[in-house]
Structures are given as C-alpha cells and as structure tokens.
C-alpha cells in the first residue's frame, strides 16, 4: 500500500524528514506517529525548569566567576505570554547588579534559558570550554558569567551595561525544534545598553553537536568579537566572513594578526 522512495539512502545527508514514502497523497501511519512523539517531546522541553545551580557549578569548574540574575517574569506561563518581562531584570536582580562596583571589561557573558533550558543544560559548559582558549589568546577581560532565569536575549543588554562591558555575548536556549530540542543561540552586541534592537546584533545559531559544533561556534564567535571591537559595530553592518579562514572546514589555531 505504501510507496517507498528510492532515495532513502540520502537521508544520511540531512536531519530533515526526507524520503518518508507515501500512501496516496498522505504520510504513512508510522511517520504520523513519529512526528506526534517528536512534537510531544518538544512541548515538554519548552516547559522544563532551568537547573541554574548545576550549570553554575560547571561554569565555575572551567575557571569563570559567576553571578545569578532573574527576569521580571515570575513564572513560565507568564514568561511565554509576556516577552517584555523576560527582557527586563527583576527589581531585586537590578539592585544586586547595581550594588557591584565593577571595573570596565571587554566582554560580558550571559547564559539565558530562553525557550529551552535543555539547550543550556547540554551546551553551556562544552561551548564555554571551547571559547575559553580564544578569550585567553586575545587577552580579553571578562565579567563574571551571568546565569539568567526566565530570560530572553534583550535581558543581556541591561546586564552588559551594568557590568560595564564593551561587548556582550548572550548564550540562549533556542526555541526547540522537533529534531533539536537542545540547540544554543549566540547573540553578540557591541556597547550593550537597554533599547538595543535586533538589527544591532549578530547571531550564530544552532550550536550543538549535530549542528554547528562547539569548536566551530567558538571560533566564529571569537572572529565576530574581534571584528566588532575593531570596527566598532555589530549587527547588519558586520558581515560574517569567518569561513574564509577555515582550513578544511576546521578553525585556524589563531585569528590572523591585525596589520
């Protein structure tokens, strides 16, 4: 009854659902059920709570200082309906950050649960481990890594501003897909301050083992940070040409010397 597609062997080139076969115009039963299961799992990932304590321990083990903040969204259901609250610090977090007497730094790193705590749990420590050598090679000073709960990308602007950072990197749990419930996004913003727009950021998405690998993502981010600091801008004016430096698809040992 089912027409199978004779190009099933190509499915190894992509995680996309190709060569599913058909019965008439429609999907075979097994595929309909497989899809339903994936959707159920993605729905569950959206609502999984953020285990900030464990992630904080892993980040500290890499040698970074940390601090914790929360957004103004009091609960997950409110967070989903009110993105404005997820972009703002809670009063208590703001007061705590203001009380710090921080020296200016090159870089602030904010780890935000976004729409997938599962992504933060899985990707944060291995990604930061891959990024750390680039930070050391470039000699960038770094503020304590801020773990932000119920937080969207723009929450980082306020954190970066209060940490007196020249550049802000937000690691955020991306909206779970059916095939990727744990994908990390990286957003770079120069001179972060409240009110920055998305056109003023650069984004590197789909950071996970099956997507953009941690070493490649760390190299790409380091390239962007250095270009942003050199050119004095992020966003649509900063075009990604980092791939030109790859050697057989792998990152070079260092960024080229500035001349």
């Amino acid at each position: 009854m089912i027409d199978r597609d004779p190009w099933q062997s190509f499915a190894r080139y992509t995680p996309a659902r190709i060569a599913l076969g058909r019965t008439g115009a429609s999907l075979p039963t097994a595929e309909v059920l497989r899809f339903s299961l994936a959707h159920a799992q993605a729905r569950d990932a959206v609502h999984m709570p953020f285990d900030a304590a464990t992630v904080e321990g892993e980040i500290r083990a890499l040698g970074f200082d940390t601090l914790r903040v929360e957004s103004a969204a009091p609960a997950r259901d409110v967070y989903l309906r009110r993105p404005d609250l997820g972009r703002r610090l809670s009063d208590e977090s703001r007061a705590r950050l203001s009380a710090r007497d921080a020296a200016p730094v090159d870089l602030a790193l904010v780890v935000a649960d976004g729409l997938s705590a599962a992504a933060i749990h899985a990707q944060t420590a291995p990604f930061l481990a891959a990024l750390k050598p680039w930070i050391e090679k470039e000699g960038w000073s770094v503020a304590p890594v801020a773990l932000a709960a119920q937080a969207r990308v723009a929450l980082g602007d306020e954190v970066g501003e209060r940490l007196k950072a020249r550049a802000l990197v937000v690691l955020v749990g991306e909206r779970p897909g059916l095939s990727s419930p744990d994908s990390l996004g990286l957003y770079l913003t120069l001179n972060p301050h409240v009110g920055r727009s998305d056109a003023e950021r650069n984004c590197i998405s789909n950071v996970r083992a099956e997507g953009l690998s941690h070493p490649l993502a760390a190299f790409k981010l380091a390239w962007h940070i250095r270009e942003a600091l050199r050119l004095g801008l992020t966003g649509v004016g900063l075009k990604d040409e980092s791939d030109l430096l790859l050697i057989d698809g792998s990152p070079p040992a260092a960024l080229p010397d500035l001349t």
Binding site: A16, I18, L27, F35, R175, P176, G177, L178, S179, S180
Partner: peptide, 11 residues
Amino acid sequence: PGADDVMLNYQ
C-alpha cells in the same frame, strides 16, 4: 520535508 524545519525549528 515532513513539515519539520530542522534549521528554523518550527513546523
């Protein structure tokens, strides 16, 4: 394919 966008993460 299969209504699942594996890059943009939506259906």
